[in-house]
Design a protein around this nucleic acid. Structure first.
Lengths: 326, 326
DNA sequence: GATTGTGGTGGCAGCGCTCCCAGGTGTGTG
DNA sequence: CACACACCTGGGAGCGCTGCCACCACAATC
């Protein structure tokens, strides 16, 4: 047993394997030539010594940085205290663990995009994950991080993205409502600056237009509070509405609360749908569309860490989840 | 504007300030002597150049590590995909961001505690946050990380901890049930190996003993599924039960589901309570006790990063949240 | 005037790693 | 048999930073 708690270094491994540090490095890092014999001996020695590469030293010499930054755009710092962001960060931290890296989260105020520049000037940043980002922010990604940046939810030509198929999910929902005989379908949308929200809205508009039905849109912001207010507005402007499509489950839950408070039956008088399939949705029997946040975040983080983001958008399908609210 | 994207180094700052690198280091790191004049000039130069210390280099020379490890003990890797762990990791990542560090999460299987040793042998680990840990695990924390380790939820003499006052929260719940006239109070407990769960159980036992009432305990595991089964067991063993205390909100929600399926009125026939006050609790009108996970995790992470964990336990109060289920 | 501080400073080694470069040893071609 | 061209290897520099050490100036003490 080793009595010294000093962790094994590459030198220790090289010595144990009877090769030079250079050769050991080549084998461990996996680039450059190395004979099968050398490879074998280095790996054996490394295993025996329980060798783990020193992330700091590696990052220093490679100029690579040592942590992945999750930058979340939003109106206030409160966006960070959110179940969605929690899942993104936590999944990312699981992936990072396998690479000897860590994750940090920071908020980028919508009205102060330069904050991103300051955050990425730190050469400790090995990669960038953009959440709820905007075109402005996308343009601010420094060259150093090009090829090490992935956006979640918002695509662009310069930065690859991983997305949920908001359009497809929303389309499935609207089609379901139509098939169930609903014809006066309203929607509580998301903030206009978020393109992923707009994809849902466009799917809704497209389907209604194809069916020759008018769109009934009220601006929302993903929250239940805003959903409540929006529901009342829908009722006031279009009293004959028989279905409300929520941009998110939280929105839909707010809508349902407001409707029931007004004595409107759900789904009897008005069907209500959400998006995301959060745990609360199954408990409240909300019809919604799935949103595999963990898988999306894991895919995005892996792209960044493997340093080969797939250009363009990688889109995960969203499945219709039928429950009682619609 | 700087055209080269190379970030400023300490050498650049020292040169701009007209001092040696040593002096600049002393000023920036804040230890050792430095004249007010030197201090002033270094800070000015650093600001002007937008200098950010290279976390990797600093960690390398200090032998300090570059990320905080959140180690979660549990039966399966699925413990990581959990809202509670998400919040801990995400809050920690917020704190870490301020220190130029990152977070990684790893699962430590209950039947393979040695995994922790392998994880902490990595000298990239700057600090350790133990979640749902056990005495065995607490004993496995290496000397190198002593003083840089905090446990969340489980205390010990060797490792400082940050806790929620499970005992106090549960006591408040049981007292409330008693005050409401409930006298045949059962409890669905947590796994025996988790001391934070046991604190709740002991508070429950103590209060019932003081009131001269018998305890009615069924083993649970924090999940809704187990809560459902446990509720049926309570009904079978003690059909006259008029209140069930759940170890968690998920447990309580399972209990309620099972009771209603059996035609038992909640809270009419049987009052049910939870613990944690998750979002679902307010939506389902569950009486519970608050559990400020974010504040707890932030406090724990700060202790680790400041390298001065308060010895013993730091306990956050848990407040009774009255709703309709009890 | 010689000694002992005491606050302030720069030189320099070295943390663990990667990668360039010079120099092997073998196999195929002119 | 000389040459080219593989493949493979070890030496060594150096990434950016900290902290030890030697040094210097100046004031206080003997």
């Amino acid at each position: 047993m080793k009595t010294t708690r000093r962790p094994a270094t590459l030198d220790d491994v090289a010595r144990a394997a009877g090769v030079s540090r250079s050769t050991a490095s080549r084998v461990i890092a996996g680039n450059g030539f190395a004979s099968p014999i050398a490879r074998e001996r280095v790996h054996t020695a490394a295993d025996r010594l329980g060798y783990v590469p020193n992330a700091a030293a590696r990052a220093l010499v490679r100029g690579a940085g040592v942590r992945l930054l999750v930058a979340v755009a939003g109106a206030s710092a409160a966006v960070l205290d959110d179940g969605y962001v929690d899942q993104v960060v936590s999944s990312t931290a699981q992936v990072c663990a396998r690479y000897g890296l860590g994750v940090a989260v920071e908020w980028v105020p919508l009205d102060e995009p330069d904050r991103l520049t300051r955050l990425t000037d730190d050469h400790g940043v090995a990669g960038l994950l953009l959440v709820n980002t905007t075109d402005v922010l996308l343009g601010l990604v420094p060259g150093r991080l090009r090829g090490r940046t992935v956006s979640i939810g918002i695509g662009s030509t310069t930065v690859p993205s991983v997305d949920i198929d908001n359009g497809g999910g929303t389309a499935a929902i609207v089609r379901h409502l139509y098939a169930a005989g609903r014809r006066r379908i309203a929607m509580v949308t998301g903030p206009r600056w978020l393109s992923c929200a707009n994809r849902s809205v466009e799917a809704y508009r497209g389907l209604l237009r194809d069916a020759g039905l008018p769109a009934r849109e009220v601006l929302g912001d993903f929250t239940a509070t805003r959903g409540r207010a929006a529901a009342r507005e829908v009722l006031r402007r279009w009293p004959d509405t028989d279905a409300i499509v929520g941009i998110s489950d939280a929105t839909a839950l707010g809508v349902i609360g407001a409707l029931r408070a007004e004595g409107v039956q759900v789904p009897g008088d008005v069907a209500v749908t959400g998006f995301d399939d959060i745990p609360l949705a199954s408990a409240t029997a909300l019809t919604t569309a799935s949103h595999p946040v963990r898988r999306i975040a894991t895919a995005a983080a892996t792209m960044v860490l493997e340093q080969r983001p797939e250009p363009g958008s990688t889109v995960f399908p969203s499945a219709l989840v039928l429950r009682e609210s619609a």
